[in-house]
Design a protein around this nucleic acid. Structure first.
Lengths: 399, 399
DNA sequence: TTAAGTTAATTTGTTTAACCAACAAAGTAT
DNA sequence: ATACTTTGTTGGTTAAACAAATTAACTTAA
């Protein structure tokens, strides 16, 4: 049940083709989710007429979105022709900027990465712009016969309307105009989004099956900072100007091991981020043990997985604060699940007990239990996030 | 952009009449919002054909939702016939249960209360059920020729699917079956909802104009406890089993003046509720000054408005904690506005400065400013909330 | 005061895309 | 070999949009 806003009425009214648009999208989602599937199966499940389904399938086939994959087995009558999403054809370019490295990839409708390039992220914005522009337009030229769009994920505040990165705390970049630059050079449509929101979108469309079935959940991205993405009723909630999900700056306790990117020492981010984790380790073992330089998060997690007790202690401590923040979110938003992503989840076995026990304290009488998951998006969740910005548009409903 | 869930596909596919359903709803909203308005005006604003609008208006007229109000002035040609919502006809019964009193009212499509009965709320659930049943069925019989539905607002956790009140902390009622009892006795459809969520719905549809135009906001209800209602994208976010918005149990500080309904002393509710306010006053002035009995919130607010310094101090202190919680919500959810309701808002002039200054600290660089409002729903916001549960259904879009 | 121009609302016919029913194609079961 | 099933297509019907013409009712200017 949703309020109708009259300002947008001209785009909201239903035209004769609105019916087809809606049903086309539903049928496409069936092909995506249940493939291989026959026309008759879709008709049964949607309660559309078989003739209507056939007609819609013709449309989708012409639009190069689906293909026939073969003939199925009979169940007492004519054999069904089976359908699936058209794969192997590039449809999305994803640009994933993280503080350490930048990944640019080309993917097909199913989200499968067909080609990928990686380079270290430089702290000089103009230099980065140039490198990204070069790679993206390289892909665009190579696949100029395909109908491509570009999605960009960055660790900061974005403005989707004007295609601008407002602020990236890690590099202190302000008003980085990468979106428009790509649009101008390649002519492709560009969508830009905060990393945590992009991950939320990726979990919604490409995450593990038990999450894709859920319509209300929260993603927590533990990286240099802590970002949260909120999925509400099957859509990512962006808030005013896409600034929602900044629960990283929620106050959870004093005297954090590191300063938050906002300057304070009492934010959740200052207690539970990778930076906090690294700082805890140095405080515990002294700097000399870690080769005089800062230990890498990967090394820290590996040490813990190998059983090094200091590393384990640090992970547990970090998990505790992660849990406190998560339990605040659960109390307030009552999501069906919370999905944690970031390198810390490589030691999921070591932290899940601590997390679960803290989170369970927040379960209130009579309320359903919120499930905790580690992300299943793999080693580059934000890259999948950037691709999702393009792919989700193909499958999502307009409203 | 919203995910399509295949489980519900059978109810989501578009039929030929889906077009009409959508456009009918949009036209009805124009009549509601812009009345008096002519058919030609609606056609211009929606970009529907004038013939289509006329046909839809005929439908709405037959359904008794609108009426002609007269002839407008010419702007150079034929005079327009002006339309408005049909008023004066009962369509909703609202049942508003608060710890002190219970209000039951009948309202028309515009939300205007046509008739109202009030009685004190008893702590005995069965007795309350009987009183409510009697009053509601009285109204139902009196207006048996009208197409009525019932909305119920309660200060606790509700389960809309089975029509049950799961838990009311104030009275410690569990599984109070009032919804089904009314349905059985009267045959009317009943919708049950938590008070804070009902208020959010009321603000969305019947609140002040500057709020109705906003699609993302949060309502904070300060009563015996503190409840929050979240409006995302023009719809009330209920969370899993309607348990969202329990930010009252967010941890904001230690040593609250009263115990929270959940038993702890560090919840927001324990710092910022009416109960906390009353406890602060007693601690400050001593019990004897307030006639040996607990001072009433109304009295406390009146004293403050008259300039009594202790009362003012208490209100300021309470506003401080209210502000801390609100600023956490703003950081995390980035709403366009926060609407405060409850008796404390009768002293809005005394608390708004304190609130605003705390909230402004949470405004982060580059983010739009969140506006703070006192509710404009009047003295019985939860009653309007209960009526909204019925009325919003008439105007909202299905998806 | 008549003719010309405007605006409002309705009527008539066309198009889209759903539904339904009948049917051909391609199988299985007795 | 015959009867039944299942899949997918074809042709006719219906709902509701659009588009254009028409009627209604009014204002303005010669």
């Amino acid at each position: 049940m949703k309020r109708i806003y009259l300002q947008k009425a001209k785009t909201q009214i239903a035209r004769p083709n609105t019916i087809r648009d809606i049903n086309k999208q539903i049928v496409l989602n069936y092909v995506r989710d249940r493939s291989p599937i026959s026309r008759a199966d879709i008709a049964r499940e949607t309660a559309l007429q078989r003739s209507t389904v056939s007609s819609i399938i013709d449309d989708l086939y012409s639009a190069d979105l689906i293909e026939e994959i073969g003939i199925g087995t009979s169940t007492g009558g004519r054999k069904p022709t089976l359908l699936k999403l058209k794969t192997g054809v590039p449809v999305a370019i994803g640009v994933d900027v993280t503080p350490r490295e930048t990944n640019i990839a080309v993917a097909d409708l199913s989200g499968t990465v067909l080609e990928k390039e990686t380079f270290p992220t430089s702290s000089v914005a103009d230099f980065m712009s140039e490198q990204i522009l070069q790679t993206v337009s390289g892909f665009a030229n190579k696949y100029s016969d395909c109908d491509l769009e570009v999605g960009i994920s960055v660790p900061g505040v974005t403005d989707q309307l004007v295609g601008l990165v407002r602020y990236i705390p890690y590099f202190q970049w302000r008003d980085w105009d990468i979106g428009n630059q790509i649009e101008e050079k390649t002519g492709l449509t560009v969508t830009i989004e905060n990393d945590a929101n992009a991950i939320a979108l990726a979990e919604l469309w490409f995450g593990r099956e038990d999450i894709r079935k859920i319509s209300n959940f929260i993603t927590v991205l533990v990286a240099e900072g802590v970002g949260t993405g909120i999925v509400f009723d099957g859509q990512v909630y962006r808030g005013e100007k896409g600034a929602a999900g900044e629960f990283g700056h929620m106050i959870v306790g004093v005297d954090a091991p590191v300063e938050c990117s906002c300057g304070s020492y009492d934010c959740w981010e200052a207690h539970a981020s990778e930076n906090a984790m690294v700082a805890r380790y140095h405080k515990l073992v002294g700097r000399e043990l870690s080769f005089g330089r800062n230990i890498d998060v990967n090394q820290l997690v590996s040490l813990a997985n190998q059983g090094e007790e200091h590393a384990i202690k640090v992970l547990n401590e970090t998990a505790k604060y992660l849990g406190i923040g998560i339990s605040n979110l659960i109390v307030g938003l009552s999501p069906q699940a919370v999905v944690v992503s970031g390198r810390i989840t490589r030691a999921w076995d070591l932290i899940s007990d601590e997390l679960t026990s803290i989170v369970e304290r927040s379960v209130r009488r009579g309320l359903p239990k919120t499930i905790l998951f580690a992300s299943s998006l793999g080693d580059h969740p934000t890259l999948i996030g950037s691709l999702s910005l393009v792919l989700a548009k193909k499958f999502a409903s307009a409203s």
